[in-house]
């Protein structure tokens, strides 16, 4: 009997997280001697039942309620963790959304990632699961790293990058 599933004819939008795979790439870049390998099986394995999504490019002003309103269109939300500035404990533009099922999380990648929330195109990635501590930004000044050096003005994410505001990037002006 022929198998019931066929190879997909176009790319899938619910493929394993590009964040996870880029982590792999970064590691390879740092250790060029490390053997060439495709996506590590552990990463694939960790994500195969994942119910959590990392959501990025949010405005600092986007609220839990807004996120809830949009993301619950893909299924009931089990938990929502806002990303916070490590020092100020204010939202810093990302969050984790946890669903009850893996299927809902995949649907979210397919139907919500790349659409707008609060008038910004948001990014979604499958995530291996929230652990305490991950809600904080890892940039020097407490927010997300990407907001440190950004030299274009983004009113939804605190204006210019923090280091830029401090005059770090004077030579580029």
């Amino acid at each position: 009997m022929a198998p019931l599933t066929v190879r997909n004819t176009v790319d899938r939008l619910d493929k394993p997280s590009s964040y996870a795979t880029s982590k792999q790439k970064r590691r390879r870049y740092r250790n060029p001697d490390e053997e060439e390998r495709e996506k590590s099986p552990e990463v694939e394995d960790k994500l195969k039942d994942a119910t959590t999504l990392y959501v990025g490019n949010l405005s600092f002003y986007t609220t839990e309620e807004q996120i809830h309103e949009l993301f619950s269109k893909c299924g009931e939300i089990k938990r929502l963790v806002m990303g916070l500035d490590r020092f100020q404990k204010t939202p810093c533009g990302f969050c984790f959304v946890e669903y009850y099922t893996h299927a809902d999380a995949l649907d979210c990648l397919k139907y919500i990632g790349g659409t707008k929330l609060d008038e910004r195109i948001i990014r979604t990635d499958l995530d291996e699961g929230f652990v305490e501590g991950r809600q904080y930004g890892r940039g020097k000044s407490g927010g997300q790293v990407r907001d440190e050096y950004r030299d274009e003005f983004d009113p939804g994410r605190g204006g210019y990058g923090r280091r830029v505001q401090e005059g770090y990037a004077d030579e580029y002006r």
Partner: peptide, 12 residues
Amino acid sequence: EHKLIYYHSIIT
């Protein structure tokens, strides 16, 4: 067949 939001996204 699918969640309504999928059809929203086709229009978008």
